Simulated assay, not measured.
Amino acid sequence: MTLRTPRPLRLGALIAVSALALTACAGTPAPAPASAQADAFSSSDVWVKAADEGMSAGFGTLANTGDTDLTVVSATDDATSSMQLHETMQNESGQMVMREIEGGFVIPAGGSLELAPGGNHLMFMDVTTPLRAGDETTITLTFADDSTARIVAPIKEFSGANETYEGDMGDMDMGQ
């Protein structure tokens, strides 16, 4: 004697088994992706020194609204062939000099980093497109996690920022 299972019952059992199999394959849900460092970044009062050629610099306040430190590892701008993140340091002879910072700018959790003439700044190493007062330029910052943030900065006349640079930069012109 052959027992036959009614067709609706077989279909229901097949659906239930399939659902259980899919649930077992799924396992635990994947963790939500960590937010990008750029998501916790903001800036204010950013501006760039006007220059037709040579070097220039960008200044302003970089802020971190997150609960972990942010690290800016590089910067780019279409107006220059190369940018560096610079710090002010005292050299062996006691002179204050500017040089590329090792490891990038760290913006503390819940804090800010001031970029200012005579202090930390974004260095436009070789201006290839004139930076004219009254115009704007767009700086792209890259963070340690490869996320990026864009800053639109006004260009201003400024007679300062003619600092001494350490190493091979000592003979470069600051775009006077």
Rank of each mutant, 00 (worst) to 15 (best):
T140D: 09
A133G: 11
L70W: 05
M55W: 08
S18E: 06
M83T: 10
Q84D: 10
L22D: 01
V152T: 15
R10E: 13
R4M: 08
G104I: 07
A57T: 00
D168W: 02
A75S: 12
V106P: 00
R150E: 15
D78R: 12
H86E: 05
A21D: 11
A79K: 02
G118I: 04
D69V: 04
L20W: 05
D77A: 13
L20G: 14
E163S: 08
N91C: 01
A133H: 07
G110H: 00
P6A: 11
D69H: 06
F105Y: 10
A79M: 08
E87Q: 04
F143Y: 08
G60M: 02
T140P: 10
T80E: 01
V127A: 02
M125T: 05
C25M: 13
G134Y: 01
N64K: 06
H86Q: 08
I139C: 04
P31D: 13
L85S: 07
D173K: 12
S74N: 11
R150G: 10
A161I: 00
T142E: 14
A19F: 13
P108A: 10
D146K: 13
G103F: 04
G104C: 10
F124H: 05
D126M: 05
D77G: 01
R132V: 15
D126I: 06
G160R: 11
V106Y: 03
F105D: 03
S81M: 02
A51D: 01
V97E: 00
S147M: 08
P117M: 00
D52I: 03
Q37R: 09
L115F: 09
A21P: 02
L62H: 05
M172H: 13
D145E: 11
T129G: 04
P33N: 01
I107D: 03
D168G: 14
G66Y: 06
P6K: 12
G54T: 10
A13R: 12
E92Q: 06
A79Y: 05
A153W: 02
M55K: 06
P108E: 07
A51Y: 04
A109H: 04
T138A: 10
E136I: 08
M174D: 08
N162R: 14
A19S: 14
M172L: 12
R150Y: 07
T164S: 05
L131R: 07
G167Y: 09
T88Q: 07
L113D: 06
L131N: 03
L141S: 03
L20K: 05
